[in-house]
Computed example of a mutant assay.
Amino acid sequence: MSGLPRSSHALVTGGGRGIGRAIASALAQAGATVTVIGRNRATLEEAVAAGAAHFAEVADVADEAAISAAIARAGDRQPIDILIANAGVAESAPFAKSDVALFRRMIDVDFMGVVHAVQAVLPAMKVRPYGRIVAIASTAGLKGYAYASAYSAAKHAVVGLVRSLALELATTHITVNAVCPGFTDTDLLADSIDNIMKKTGRSHEQAVADLSRNNPQARLVTPAEVADTVVWLCGEGAGAITGQAIAVAGGEV
């Protein structure tokens, strides 16, 4: 399997924790210079101090001007070859209780956050000799989940964007793919587990089992498993892989 090009620069949104941090760390270990972007400066700086990334920029992906400026600063240090559009939020509610504000939050962060990041990196990436764009979607972008209509709709939009953009860029050196994790063992999922426990009175073990029941392997996915898939897609050996939405979900999809 071919690795990353020498001296490549990877940018990871939402790279301070969870899946994003695991991806940043894996890319750094594979030889890339890594810049992480997120909203919490302390979290980002801790990731840099721990060696999971080399540089950090503070920005909210839902803020087009802020994310564009952050990416421009990162690109001024070193042109960007790899974008991992990972930043996202997840909220659940029955459809009848999902107001317009909830749908807008999911679309603004989970979908438009990807759009803003891609639009910011693409012009310069087109003139580079190498380009990889990977959006972190979800199995919710490949199937429906009850009580997650807004989140699922936003993630479906990400997958549609990836498939369309891959066709537009198919004759270039840039590939565009989505990685779609199932329920993954992160602090974001821990919040969901706490909510299940509070609302249903179930134990922690019961709540985890409830989230794992859709996975035929009967377990949660690990951030490292998602990161390994991303690193492979960013490597030179994955040049023919584009427009794909790859589930990392134990056979769920």
Rank of each mutant, 00 (worst) to 15 (best):
S2Y: 09
L4K: 03
R6H: 14
R6V: 15
H9P: 04
A10L: 10
L11D: 01
G20H: 07
R21L: 10
R21D: 00
I23P: 08
I23T: 06
G31Y: 07
G31S: 05
G31W: 04
R39T: 12
R41Y: 06
V48I: 12
V48C: 03
A50G: 07
G51A: 01
F55Q: 05
D60W: 00
D63A: 05
A65Q: 11
I67A: 09
I67C: 08
I67F: 02
S68Y: 08
A69F: 11
I71R: 11
Q78R: 15
I82Y: 12
A85M: 07
E91R: 13
A93K: 11
S98M: 02
A101K: 08
L102C: 12
R104Q: 13
R104N: 14
M106C: 03
I107Q: 14
V114G: 09
V114H: 12
V115C: 13
A120R: 10
K126E: 14
P129G: 06
P129D: 15
I133H: 06
A140C: 12
G144E: 09
Y147W: 15
A153N: 01
R163S: 07
E168V: 11
L169R: 03
I174E: 05
P181C: 10
P181F: 04
G182M: 03
D185G: 01
S192G: 14
H204K: 14
H204D: 11
H204S: 12
Q206S: 02
R213I: 14
N214T: 15
N215F: 01
P216Q: 09
R219W: 01
P223G: 03
A224I: 03
D228A: 15
V230R: 03
V231G: 11
L233K: 00
G235T: 00
G239S: 11
Q244R: 13
A247Y: 01
